[in-house]
Structures are given as structure tokens and as C-alpha cells.
Amino acid sequence: MSSYTKRFDGRKFDELRPIEAKAGVIKKADGSAYFRIGKTTAYAAVYGPRELYPKFLQDPKQGLLRCNYNMMPFSGAGERVRPGPSRRSKEISLITERALRPVLDLKDFPNAVVDVFVELTETDAGSRCAGICAASIALADAGILMKDLVVAFSVGKVGDQVVVDLDGDEEHFESNSSVDIPIGLIPSTGEITLLQADGRISPEDIRKCIKMAQERAPAVSEILRKALKEKYATE
């Protein structure tokens, strides 16, 4: 394994790419958000709570969360992304839902559904995490009861170095030998709602990665909160 002494874009090993977030970008939606991290851009729109059909999907105890993740055809690096649902987008829709569900309180909305649509206009690694961050802001913007905003970004290992927030070049480092771990956290409790991993990594390094993620989470959380507050800024 070769050594990785300096990051391609000059960041520190525990530094995230520049983040930009905005709430309320889609006026017709009940809640919406834009979230950009480096060259990855996500839009999320929330509709609902609203009636859920077909009826057999309804849960009489609480409302349901339904997420949809989609990469736009022109969003990838070079190759055209084939439009429509795929094995990958279906998986990411599901893990987005599971990452967000623990913070939501939908007991007031039995038999109803909250729909979240995440669209990626530009992707350069970390798209599922960007989608979760955007969805977090959008859900709060829709006025849904939630105990915290879920934050998500990736951690991992490039060469012999543990890093935060891999970009596309790092993900493809030395014929895809790097390790990519998307992680979702509830900042107020430190609980993990999403943890996937791609590649070979030792248990010690995984612990290091998670610790780094927990250290970075409050900063990302602050950006999400600021986006929501800016929508209602008085001046």
C-alpha cells in the first residue's frame, strides 16, 4: 500500500470540502433544500404529510417516510447516467429513508406519508450523504417534528491515510483501492443512523474513521441549521 501524504485538492486530512446549503429553493414543495459539498450538488423536495395510496401501505400507528434518490443523466463525471431507477438508486433510497427515520416523529399522521425526493445535479463522490443532508433541511423546512437534523458525509482511507470526505479522485485512488465509508449521525446524541463501507479496512482504522466523523459532525450540523435560519432572516 502506497503512502498518501498530501490530498489532491490540498485539504487537511480531517477537512471537509466547502459546503453550501439553502432552504426553501422549491416554492411549490412543502419543504425543500439545496446542499452542495465540493462538486456534489443535491436538491431535496418534501411533499406531505399527505394521503397514502395504495391503502395496504398505510400504517395506522404512524406516518410513513418514503425517499427517492436519483442522479440526473448529466450529473456523472463523463459517462451519461442512464435515467430511471436502478439497483443502486433503489438501495440508496432505502438507506436514506433509514438514516432519516430515527429522528422523525410522525405519530400525529397515521395512515399518511411524507415523500422526499432527492435529485443530484452534479456528483463527485459522497452523493448519498449530500442527499441525506439536503433531505434533513427539507424535512425541517416542511415543519415536520424531528428531534435533530441528521448529518451525513463520508470518511475512509486513501492509501495508508485515514481521511474525511473523499472526493471523486480519492475514491478512485490506485485503481479503486481506497475505502469509502458513508456515515450518518444524529449530532445531539452521537448516534449513527447510516454506516456502509466499501473496501478493505482494519477494525482500528474503522474506529478512527468513526471518531473523526463524530468530531466533524457538529460543524456540518451548524451549516444545516444556518441554512434554515437564513430563510427566515429579518433583514
Binding site: L145, M146, K147, L149, S221, L224, Y232
Partner: peptide
């Protein structure tokens, strides 16, 4: 009082 708060704050 009367300030905007966001979930988790």
C-alpha cells in the same frame, strides 16, 4: 423569545 429555532437546537 420570538427567535427562530431549528430542530436539535
Amino acid at each position: 423569545d420570538k427567535n427562530v429555532v431549528v430542530p436539535g437546537e
